[in-house]
Amino acid sequence: MLIPHPLLGPRDAVEFTYLGDASLLARPDGLAEGADAAFHDYVYLRDNPAGVHRELWYHEQGDRSWLVVTRNTVTHEILGAELARDVALAMRGAK
């Protein structure tokens, strides 16, 4: 596969390490009420869609950027990639 790195252009997927669903960006507050249940959902449950999936890839043999890649899990077509940090900052802003 080729990952369309937003800064570096298409890069061989073997340079990356895959983590999983981009919902891992939304870590619950560990000090909040109900953290146990929130963390169970965060750590263990996945939508696991057959289709468009937003997922985290780490450019380990590259620039060490974490990316949010939008990819179709049925066709493997990649619809886009963003720096995860930008996505995470936007999520904070939206809160």
Binding site: D12, A13, V14, Y18, D21, N48, R71, V74, T75
Partner: peptide
């Protein structure tokens, strides 16, 4: 292969 997939096929690496 290490990534989520329903394609029943993998890659060269």
């Amino acid at each position: 292969d290490g990534y989520n997939s329903y394609a029943q096929r993998g890659n060269l690496a």
